[in-house]
Design a protein around this nucleic acid. Structure first.
Length: 593
RNA sequence: GCACUCGUAGCUCAAUUGGAUAGAGCAUCGGUCUUCGGAACCGAGGGUUGCAGGUUCGAGUCCUGCCGAGUGCGCCA
């Protein structure tokens, strides 16, 4: 099923071509205010200029007139457009027919995809996100990448099919820090992590490793001889020495036990098979460097092998260190090549924080010049800002430490549980404690994810429990509540034997809600185009708000048939759209709250 | 020093590849309703979109300069 916007685009493109013999984007957008109708075409002004450049001077309004004279919108409108639909400098306003909208909504109510079209040509996409580090617990620094990357993946899956989206968890399981860690392990400190002790719980393992990491780092920073030893150890590890590899593997396994449960709690789809850590690319790195050398892109400089991406006078990208050893630029280059050549991806997306902007710009630029990423491959870096505390500084614990993700999720679930308990108590309903905990999880985890996803990812955002758990405004609980209300109405209405006789839109609030439901596909397409989940949040918030308006003004259960059936159907499509939207964000939606 | 990102109402955030009169929530103030889930509704005030130019029929959005905040910048990732 096509979106309304796309149908209008086709009709207008045809009309423009018929009138002027040119192909032009009709620039169809949703109208800002109802007085200008539902959609508008903004093409006439630009077209006037374009035709003037070709020697034909025509005013935008005249152009608009000729466009609508050639326009056939069929039953989408009650009457063909006329001069009264041309406004301002040459906007063409389109007011859709209520009966056509009702018929359309009827179709969508029977469509499992709710009017969201599949991509016309499926494109295989790799999404790189999360990327926790070995020997460390996940902390809030990983949160945004993990949930934004997952939401982007889900949306693209919905359009291009799950088989065309490959998640890649580029974990930090390789690199210089392992030289430090292994060297520190070998020298012994009296505080070595008990990486072999089966009697030790996974949690305490990780806690030990973190302390161990701190000690190793301290020693590395203070002791020049130790630094040298660490560098040599990395080289031995990277050339596959068994002793080093053994120590390394133990550390990796311990870390994995920490982050997989976190993904499950976050309702994030990353699994162990999505893992392609830095170590995975180890066998390809020498070849990557050789290839770049052969292409003349990589050169020796001050003992290292580098690519002067920005010219000889600017700091280069280092791909091999003095004395051997590769860096994360080399690994990412190998990743680009692997994803294109082996995974056959045509679209690579990297969801990492904005501090990596320069890094990815250099990697992409080099991958293009090296010939790995051709013109048929799209490379996207989708950066995001920092999570801030109420004080406007990076989010930390009161003592100034980074917040562990596990602790954050514990608190979210507890706060969600308290809300669920309080609300159910005030309503006097009978819900088991187990159910309350499940609802509390949905609320708490949903709130954390939604408060992040609902903001434009490029800017920093302020973390606030109070705001994200509010029942008012653009929050997860508000949307979850709206969903629960739709389901509550349906439950109260009981089973209706007769299938809905069709949807009728008579009240303004019904029409407003219906029009918005019909835009779901457009919203999803925009999210996929801009890779910005907050636009989906915005759509869902508007949907919930418009449902609320409908709910206030249009009695459902108390209405007479056939209005009752029509409104129940409206509730049902609303519910399913909310549910589908929240699913695409990876946020749960309990049947009752 | 160079580069990138950002600057919108008191606060937190929107504004569909440049479109018409810049919108929500919170907070503030005023009002309404014997409720299909009060976790309600209606209304008001609040803006020179950091500043100054420029491009355009049209700029919060694009360009230049300045101010302010953040981030990155040869052997960590």
């Amino acid at each position: 099923m096509e979106t309304i916007q796309h149908s209008l685009e086709q009709a207008f493109t045809k009309a423009i071509h018929a009138a002027f013999g040119v192909a032009a984007d009709p620039l169809i957008t949703v109208s800002a205010t109802p007085q200008f109708g539902d959609y508008q075409s903004n093409a006439a002004m630009g077209l006037s200029k374009r035709l003037a450049a070709g020697g034909t001077k025509t005013s935008p309004r005249q152009i608009a007139e000729q466009v609508i004279a050639n326009l056939d919108l069929g039953k989408m409108v009650d009457a063909p457009l006329g001069t009264r639909d041309i406004a301002g400098p040459g906007f063409i306003n389109i007011r859709l027919s209520p009966s056509w909208l009702a018929g359309r909504l009827d179709e969508i109510s029977r469509d499992p995809r709710l009017g969201v079209p599949r991509a016309s040509a499926a494109i295989r996409t790799v999404v790189d996100y999360s990327g926790p580090n070995v020997a460390k617990q996940m902390h809030v620094g990983h949160l945004r990448s993990t949930i934004i990357g997952d939401a982007i993946s889900r949306v693209i899956e919905h359009l291009h099919g799950a088989e065309n989206v490959i998640r890649q968890n580029h974990i930090g399981d390789w690199g210089t820090q392992f030289g430090m860690l292994i060297a520190h392990l070998r020298h012994g400190t009296g505080n070595s992590p008990s990486v072999e002790g089966a009697s030790v719980t996974p949690e305490s393992h990780i806690a030990d490793l973190e302390e161990f990491y701190r000690q190793a780092k301290k020693r590395f920073d203070e002791d020049a001889a130790f630094q040298d030893e660490a560098r040599k150890t990395v080289v031995r590890l990277q050339s596959g020495e068994p002793a080093e590899r053994d120590a390394w593997q133990k550390i990796v396994l311990e870390t994995r036990r920490d982050y997989q449960p976190i993904y499950l709690r976050l309702n994030v789809k990353l699994r162990e098979e999505d893992e392609r850590g830095e170590s995975f690319y180890n066998p390809f790195l020498a070849d990557v460097v050789n290839h770049l050398k052969q292409k003349g892109l990589a050169v020796e400089s001050e003992g290292a092998t580098v690519v002067f991406v920005d010219g000889p006078d600017k700091p280069p990208m280092i791909i091999e260190k003095t004395g051997g050893g590769y860096l994360y630029a080399t690994t990412d280059l190998a990743g680009v090549r692997y994803r294109i050549q082996e995974l056959h991806a045509k679209h690579l997306i990297y969801t990492h924080d904005s501090r990596q902007a320069n890094h990815f710009r250099q990697v992409f630029d080099t991958a293009r010049k090296a010939g790995w990423a051709g013109n048929d491959v799209q490379l996207d870096y989708t950066p995001f800002g920092t999570m801030l505390g109420a004080d406007g500084k990076p989010f930390k614990t009161r003592s100034g430490d980074t917040v562990k993700l596990k602790d954050l999720l514990d608190e979210a679930e507890e706060r969600g549980y308290q809300i669920a308990k309080e609300k159910s108590g005030s309503r006097g309903t009978d819900i088991s404690d187990e159910q309350l905990k499940a609802i509390g999880r949905a609320i708490g985890i949903g709130a954390i994810k939604y408060s992040d996803l609902s903001k434009d990812r490029t800017s920093d955002y302020v973390f606030s429990w109070e705001k994200m758990l509010s029942m008012d405004g653009n929050t997860a609980p508000y949307l979850q509540y709206a969903y629960a209300r739709t389901r509550s109405i349906q439950r109260k209405a009981g089973k209706t034997d007769s299938p809905p006789a069709g949807i009728n839109l008579t009240q303004p609030a019904e029409l407003i809600l219906a029009k918005h439901i019909l835009r779901f596909g457009e919203a999803i397409e925009i999210v996929a185009r801009d890779l910005k989940p907050h636009l989906l949040c915005l759509y869902l918030y508007d949907l919930a708000t418009k449902f609320s308006g409908f709910f206030e003004n249009c009695p459902v259960i108390q209405s007479e048939e056939p209005i009752r059936a029509s409104r129940l159907a409206l509730c049902d499509v609303t519910a399913r759209t909310l549910a589908q939207g929240l699913d695409l964000l990876g946020i749960e939606h309990p049947e009752q709250m």
